[in-house]
């Protein structure tokens, strides 16, 4: 279409300028030169419009790809959030089974903490953000359940004294790091294992450090999945606003996360 318009104008202008030379003259003197120049003009226009068309198409495709990717990520994000460890849930229920069997008072404690955890997962995990307090409570309940499960045979610290718990954060960011600490370091055989978690805030910047001793590793298939998930979620939810360092030495596993919650 564009080419047809261009050619039409070319013919008109050429006719106008060359009409002064007379028709017969024009064909005799300028025959092949005119042919070449017209061809050149046409070719350059074709290439030029072709490039425009290519560029437009390319941008369009890139756009489509991006929206597709975004949709994919949104779906994935939803899925990642729903990936609450069912193993933990059913094992806790089984422990509860035991505690009721031996008529232990801890049974009721476990029920309350498990309910808190489920409430958080069911009602709060869908929200874009929650207060730091809620996330902290969730971790505290989780840790207490793990402590009961492992019979308190390890050294556990969770320090939140320096944290402003009214800041808002995306839900379920901490748990993969905490779960990971248990997967890597804690077994009920080794009584010297430990986990040390520190959470603090300065203005709108939040610092989380999770450290744990390294013990026997649980089978590899499941560990690591949670970490990969949270990395994706951080990249999606806090682009350019977080740093995450993971260090593994022979005896210690160290995670530090800095997050700008502004």
């Amino acid at each position: 279409m564009a080419i047809a318009v261009v050619m039409f104008f070319q013919v008109i202008t050429e006719n106008a300028t060359l009409s002064s030379l007379g028709t017969s003259n024009y064909f005799e003197t300028f025959g092949w030169i005119r042919f070449v120049s017209t061809l050149w003009d046409e070719m350059s226009f074709m290439i030029f419009t072709g490039m425009i068309k290519f560029a437009v198409d390319w941008f369009e495709m890139e756009n489509k790809k991006k929206t597709l990717e975004n949709e994919k990520l949104a779906v994935e994000l939803k899925y990642l959030k729903s990936q609450i460890n069912p193993h933990f849930l059913f094992n806790t229920l089984h422990n509860l089974n035991y505690l009721t069997q031996i008529k232990s008072d801890q049974a009721s404690e476990v029920i309350v903490m498990l309910s808190n955890i489920m409430r958080y997962m069911i009602y709060d995990s869908n929200k874009p953000s929650v207060t730091l307090r809620k996330e902290i409570d969730y971790i505290q309940d989780y840790l207490a359940l793990e402590a009961i499960r492992l019979n308190n045979k390890f050294d556990l610290k969770f320090d939140v004294t320096e944290a402003n718990d009214q800041l808002e954060i995306a839900p379920l960011i901490f748990i993969p790091f905490v779960e990971n600490a248990f997967k890597h370091g804690i077994s009920d055989k080794d009584e010297k294992s430990w986990i040390d978690i520190r959470l603090s805030t300065k203005e709108n910047i939040m610092y989380l450090v999770v450290e744990n001793s390294i013990g026997e590793k649980v089978d590899m298939e499941s560990s690591g999945v949670g970490l990969e998930n949270v990395k994706k979620r951080l990249a999606l939810g806090y682009p350019g606003k977080y740093t995450l360092d993971i260090d593994e030495s022979e005896k210690k596993y160290h995670v530090s996360l800095t997050l700008d919650l502004a």
Partner: peptide
Amino acid sequence: EPMARKLLLD
């Protein structure tokens, strides 16, 4: 799991 073991033993 310690408790699961105890339950089975029981």
